[in-house]
Design a protein around this nucleic acid. Sequence first.
DNA 1: TAGTGGTCTAGACCACGAA
DNA 2: TCGTGGTCTAGACCACTAA
Lengths: 234, 234
Amino acid sequence: MPLGPTLKHVQVREYVRDLIQDLPEGAPAPSERGLMQHFGVARMTVRQAIDALVSEGLLERAPARGTFVCKSPRPVSRPLSFAEDARARGWNVTTETLQTGLGQAGPGVAKALGITVGDSVVHWRRRRRHDDVPLCYQDVYLNEILLPGFLQTGLPDSLYSLLAARGLRPTAAEDQLSADLAHAVDADLLDLEIGDPVLRHSRRGLVGDIVIELSRSVYAGARYTWWSPLTVSP
Amino acid sequence: MPLGPTLKHVQVREYVRDLIQDLPEGAPAPSERGLMQHFGVARMTVRQAIDALVSEGLLERAPARGTFVCKSPRPVSRPLSFAEDARARGWNVTTETLQTGLGQAGPGVAKALGITVGDSVVHWRRRRRHDDVPLCYQDVYLNEILLPGFLQTGLPDSLYSLLAARGLRPTAAEDQLSADLAHAVDADLLDLEIGDPVLRHSRRGLVGDIVIELSRSVYAGARYTWWSPLTVSP
DNA sequence: TAGTGGTCTAGACCACGAA
DNA sequence: TCGTGGTCTAGACCACTAA
């Protein structure tokens, strides 16, 4: 059997792909043994074709039952904004802007944003409350070069919606979390006592390879548990 | 050939995984025919093992040349074990097993593992040190039904390598983190004072839809910052 | 009981790269 | 020329589900 212009497992794969694209979710795909007979090929060849479609997320196998069209095209994991996170929890959250302004990047901010010390950065400090109780405050730093006139556009509650409007919503994020005791500033902004537990969160938001956002948040430890991006909300 | 407790292609896969993790990028992996002889299995079985590692992004095939360790392990979005996390940081970490045993699931553990209160669970408590300083302690709970005889197999340092050998390494995880103050137990196990900051971490490790692992860790807050799975180590 | 997917065998030929 | 991965065959037994 010479290597034809189209491989057998490719023929089978594309045949099945066409077949299932008009099928409703959960519908049964042809069985492996049925495809063997239909194409006159070996079982392994059919399995190779089906494997490809399974790894594409189009089909799912159910041992002893059959192969079926996937219900849910695989779950997208993208960084959640604070507002989205709060909505997933069913929380009623309000936001105060405490401070905005243009500044010069210090060493830490410059390194995180991938720019040079002294470059122009947008700074935005907000406090979020849940049922009127302070939950956290957040310092966001943005590369001003990437977002000219950012502060003139009127700041909404959700940073990510603003970035999304410019096509710059982070598609990936690097999060860091650590536990600490409240300092004077933390205690003041969050209605805590000095020495109460706080959760410090730092995020670099990325679009491809470029860093869009650096945010540093301080949460009242007793009022908040951080969920990882993979956590499925109830 | 009966269905052994560990599948052949899993054995081959994990053998190769261990083998290549210490290899530099671009190094050649064992050839398929070499693995056939080494394990006394058929070619298709070896290919199934290698296919899995390729789709994980650990290996890449080069037709007519061989199979090689991936240069740029694509941003792995799989949960890292503590051992892998420590290695990524370049830390020298030691592990003590403080307690092991079979117990009955309480309400919290049962709910997290998706089993019934009173079902048999494996409990394993370890303390990890970094340069001899206590870093954290971890309580792991496993569904005994899924891992019969788990405690009899000899417990290595890495839980995930043990799960991987059974083909049950988590492919997804739900992590939760919160900040708290050290209680008496925490202070005792981590050489802290009561009231020092601690980072509490809870993870449900999933393989597909089934929960394999529940772990609860307590980190000394001043000694550890948690990195999200997306964080690329330098 | 019949059918399904999961695993596994023991071969085969091909196209290609390196020596 | 030799070894590599890519493809393919024609079977086999298993555990499981559904009728």
